[in-house]
Amino acid sequence: MSSTILKTLDTENRKKAPLTSFAVGDSIKVMVKIKEGDKERVQAFSGTVIARKGSGATETFTIRRISFGEGVERIFPVNSPSIAGIEVETVGQKRRAKLYFLRDRSGKTARTATQQA
């Protein structure tokens, strides 16, 4: 009658092959599987990682991008089966765990400092 079952569930719900490691501040490209009828295709969503939340199988990350002048954010579960893969485009330098301040900025100041990957 212990919570070992919760740990088992956690292990089972993690991705079999872990994703490419990335951190808050990085610019990444997420390959999202999209189902259209019977067909499945992959769509990319790229932007800056502004937060990673939670732990274990239920961990999520938030990606922010500016799309046609409008800020767009998407939250993905790290272990989501609909993520085909992740490409790290640039590795960012950051001083905070959550980059929510980027929401209030625009233009050049909305970028994270980058370091060569």
């Binding site: 009658m1 919570s3 079952i5 919760l6 569930l9 956690d10 089972e12 719900n13 599987k33 199988a57 239920t58 579960p77 272990n79 989501s80 089966p81 609909s82």
Partner: peptide, 20 residues
């Protein structure tokens, strides 16, 4: 026993309560 989230067949996360 507690709550967690699991992925269903469609790949969606489902909030679940674990009951012994």
């Amino acid at each position: 026993l507690g709550m967690t989230r699991i992925f269903n067949d469609q790949g969606h996360q489902v909030p679940v309560t674990v009951i012994a």
